[in-house]
Amino acid sequence: MNPSLAGLSVLLADDHAMVRMGFRLLLEGAGATVLGEAESGEQALRLYDELRPDVLTMDVSMPGIGGLAALERLRAHHPAARVLMLSAHHDAVIPVRALKAGAAGYLCKRCLPQELIQAVRLVGQDRRYLDPELAQQVALTQLSGAAHPAQALTDKEFTVFLQLAQGRSVNEVASDFHLSASTVGTHLYHIKQKLNASNAAELAVIAMRAGLIEA
Rank of each mutant, 00 (worst) to 15 (best):
G29M: 07
V55I: 11
V55H: 02
E72N: 03
M62P: 07
A69G: 08
S40T: 06
I94T: 06
A92E: 05
G36V: 00
L47M: 06
R20F: 12
V10R: 03
V19S: 13
G66C: 07
G36F: 03
P95Y: 03
L71Q: 01
L51V: 02
L12T: 01
Q43M: 14
S61H: 10
H16W: 15
G67N: 07
A32E: 04
G36C: 05
R52T: 04
V55Y: 03
V34H: 07
A80L: 15
S61C: 11
R82L: 03
S87K: 01
A30F: 13
G31I: 02
L27C: 08
G64I: 01
M58G: 01
R52M: 15
A17E: 12
H16I: 10
P63A: 03
M85N: 00
R82I: 00
A80M: 14
A38V: 02
V19K: 09
H16Y: 07
E39V: 07
H90M: 15
M18H: 07
A13S: 07
L68K: 02
L45C: 09
L84V: 00
I94Y: 08
G66I: 01
H78P: 14
L51E: 14
P53Y: 04
V83H: 14
E28D: 07
D59E: 14
V19N: 08
V34T: 04
Q43I: 05
H77C: 14
V60K: 02
D91V: 03
A32D: 11
A70F: 08
H77E: 09
V96S: 15
D14E: 14
G31L: 15
S87C: 03
S40Q: 05
R82N: 04
A13P: 13
G41I: 01
E42G: 05
A13Q: 05
V83T: 02
H16N: 09
